[in-house]
Amino acid sequence: MLDEIRDLYQEVVFDHNRNPRNFRVMDDATRKIDGFNPLCGDRITLYVRLKDGVIEDVSFQGQGCAISTASASIMTEVVRGLTEDEAHDLFQTFHRITTDQDHEIQLEELGKLAVLAGVRAYPARVKCATLAWHSLEAALKEDAETAVSTE
């Protein structure tokens, strides 16, 4: 009966929601940022350790829905080892596939992120999927401990 929402709630999403990867505090983070989605109350604290322009380590803590938790978890897996520029490009790709209805999705270019492409059919949930990414984008841009909001 619920087959039609499996494009949003794929098994991979449930897996990351149940067992989020890199779900920990990072003591030696060089950047730390608090993300907040006032619409649903989701909160994320993102930790990044940057060295010579490369994301050496990334982790998160927080409380959110399955979509935002899975998205944050998957993001931490895919951006580790990337340069700041590469992470920024990936943010833009992710943002495009989750928000741009007209864009043809090339699932190959997304790799692991493809499981979240289904969110574009749920405009009310897009912000859940992009919260972690907006937080990362802000963390890479700024040195200070600041807060980011998806509203």
Binding site: I5, L8, Y9, C40, D42, G64, A66, I67, R125, C128
Partner: peptide, 10 residues
Amino acid sequence: RIHPHDIGTI
């Protein structure tokens, strides 16, 4: 263990 937003969508 289930977020209200997920409840709402389903």
